[in-house]
Simulated assay, not measured.
Amino acid sequence: MRSAATGPGASAPGPTRRRFLMALLAIDRTSYYAVILSMGLMTLLVSVQVFARYVLSSSIDSATELARLFFVWTIFLAIPHGIKIGIHVGIDALVGVFPENFQKQLARLMALVSALLMAILFWLAIGAVADKWQQLMPTVPVAAAVFYIAVLICAGHSLLHLIAQALQVEPLPSAPGASVEGETS
């Protein structure tokens, strides 16, 4: 199976685009496994907490806070994967009446505007991380900034995908089992 980047009417990416795609692929796969790990830890922690509470009549003091932390990380690490494939809420009633070429150019413009917003969010998240670094979470001796680090990573990762969309660079498949050539198993 051929990838969309080398499909009919598309040319093979140059060396700079290829390096960008390979770096983005590495980030995507790392993020993908981090989402799985975070979801797994959240599920395990909540399950152990329910067992401890209802079977052992005990409780884990930090369970709620840690479960919330894992949930936040799961969501923010997963957002760029949705951006990558265009899964988002949108109303295209007006856009749908425009010619296809105009729709494509409008999509590129919106990707650029969104990339600008992600760059701003990235910058603001750096400030939030720095601001919250000295503050500890109530039940765990960990900086409250770990919540904002997830936002920082999300903004940076999303920015890269939005740049790729604006440049019309087709991303490589990043799910486990997908090869660099675009084949899935």
Rank of each mutant, 00 (worst) to 15 (best):
M1R: 06
R2M: 12
R2G: 10
T6K: 11
T6H: 09
G7L: 10
P8A: 15
G9T: 12
A10P: 11
S11R: 08
T16W: 10
F20R: 06
A23H: 06
L24D: 03
A26P: 03
I27S: 08
Y32V: 10
A34G: 13
L41D: 03
L41P: 07
L45Y: 03
V50Y: 01
F51H: 03
R53W: 04
V55Y: 02
S57M: 09
S58E: 06
L66Q: 03
W73Y: 07
W73T: 10
T74E: 10
P80F: 04
H81V: 01
G82A: 11
I83W: 04
I87D: 14
I91M: 13
E100Q: 05
A107C: 08
A107W: 02
S114K: 04
F122S: 02
L124G: 10
L124V: 08
G127F: 12
A130F: 14
Q134K: 05
Q135E: 15
Q135A: 15
M137D: 14
V140L: 07
A144N: 15
V146Q: 04
I149E: 03
L152Q: 08
L152N: 05
I153M: 09
A155F: 04
H157G: 00
L160A: 08
L160T: 05
H161W: 06
A164H: 01
L167P: 00
E170T: 05
A175L: 13
G177H: 14
E181F: 05
